[in-house]
Structure formats: C-alpha cells, structure tokens
C-alpha cells in the first residue's frame, strides 16, 4: 500500500468517525490542532484503522501519532 492510499483510507475513517472533510486530510496535519479530532475520537480512529489496515496500534502508541503523517508511517511500517 502506498502512503497516498493509506492517507486516503485515513481520510475516509476521519470523515466517518469525526466528520472531518476528506479534503483537509494531508500528512502534515495535526489530528488535534488542525483537524479538531479530540482524544476520544482519536481512539475511534485508531480502532477503525486497525480494522481497515489489518495492523495493531497499542494504547501507548496512540499518543505518538500527532499528525496524519505519523499515522501513515506507523501503518506503513506495520503492514
């Protein structure tokens, strides 16, 4: 899977879970500061991403995923 494909997949999840406009989703964007995803919605995003990409993202890893790019890199490395 390419980074672009992972980003597109995350954008779909972010739209469904937190109502984020997919056009706003880019690697440099911060989940909390730019996309207004709060800490609980972030958990829902992570759970949906595990299912969609077939990866495991443990609780202690979630706080390290500050930007969309962080999440893409993590998923890319795991899958």
């Amino acid at each position: 899977m390419t980074r672009e494909e992972i980003t597109t997949g995350l954008a779909e999840i972010l739209e469904e879970v937190a109502g984020v406009n997919p056009e706003d989703v880019a690697e440099g964007k911060s989940f909390t500061d730019d996309l207004d995803v709060d800490s609980l919605s972030m958990v829902e995003v992570v759970v949906a991403a595990e299912e969609k990409f077939g990866v495991k993202i443990p609780d202690n890893e979630v706080q390290n995923l500050k930007t969309v790019g962080d999440a893409v890199s993590y998923i890319e490395a795991q899958s």
Partner: peptide
C-alpha cells in the same frame, strides 16, 4: 481515559 474508552467501546 483513552485506554478505558477503547476497552469499553
């Protein structure tokens, strides 16, 4: 909070 939320949901 996040850990509990994830487990619960």
């Amino acid at each position: 909070g996040q850990s509990v939320f994830r487990w619960a949901t």
